[in-house]
Design a protein around this nucleic acid. Sequence first.
DNA 1: ATAATTATGTTTATTGGTGAATATCAACAT
DNA 2: ATGTTGATATTCACCAATAAACATAATTAT
Lengths: 143, 143
Amino acid sequence: MFIGEYQHSLDSKGRLAVPAKFRVLLKGGAVVTRGLDNCLFLYPKKQWEILATKLAGLPISQAKARAFSRLMLAGAMDVEFDNQGRITLPGYLRKFAGLKRKSIIAGLYDRLEIWDEAIWNKYKSGTEKQSSDIAETLGELGV
Amino acid sequence: MFIGEYQHSLDSKGRLAVPAKFRVLLKGGAVVTRGLDNCLFLYPKKQWEILATKLAGLPISQAKARAFSRLMLAGAMDVEFDNQGRITLPGYLRKFAGLKRKSIIAGLYDRLEIWDEAIWNKYKSGTEKQSSDIAETLGELGV
DNA sequence: ATAATTATGTTTATTGGTGAATATCAACAT
DNA sequence: ATGTTGATATTCACCAATAAACATAATTAT
């Protein structure tokens, strides 16, 4: 499963080298999509399909369901590894996540997250301060 | 299945090039119709027929059902691909969706959506702000 | 029937995605 | 320390897809 934090660079065409460790876990195909808190989610195909069918099955009559489907489904893109182990991130996703040259790839167990380095640092310094606060909330959720 | 977001242009005659990726999935025929939230829906023939029979089966006594059927059934139109992979959108649909030159084609798993770029951006900036809110609501639906 | 208008088809240019080669860097072993 | 290996960064070149402009065919109105 995915854990750890890595710093990698995008090239001028928007390609990102995925840490070699993770490639084996993504051999069967992967999907990137818009995530929460300004980052991208990268799922192994299997995980993705579970999520996607759930989303596609929501009633199209509900505005919130449509909005979320558009965020995640329309935001999604199949990614393939070229023989240097890179994936290409489409322009709209780079823009969404504010990706510049330096980015962070973080392992969140069943998914990867892709962040712009600056945004990641800012987010982290915010959450580290409140960490004990967050911990208490999680306690209420049974963690 | 359809995923991703693509930016394409209508020509002056109202023709729209469909992303090459998607053409294969629409080879068997397709149907455009009025969608929700100011966009057009584009279905592969098969999906369309499932939806159309569902709509036709709604109780004719209910005003909302009649309205929805008129929106989607009466708005529908068979589309054909020319040998450049373009489809022609009839005037009333272009008008309905407010389509100007630049438009967005979004994959929503079992259908495509066609948006005017400006309207799409507006819609997205609205939903992105509430995204974590929406996510929590959907969490309750088991997503 | 002819002109005007709309629809359809073709060609060319531009853009952007894709692949490959080289350079740089870091880790490890000798 | 130094060389070796594996991994990432960067650059260049090519090809395919799209955009735009143009040409032809079909339709409609006069």
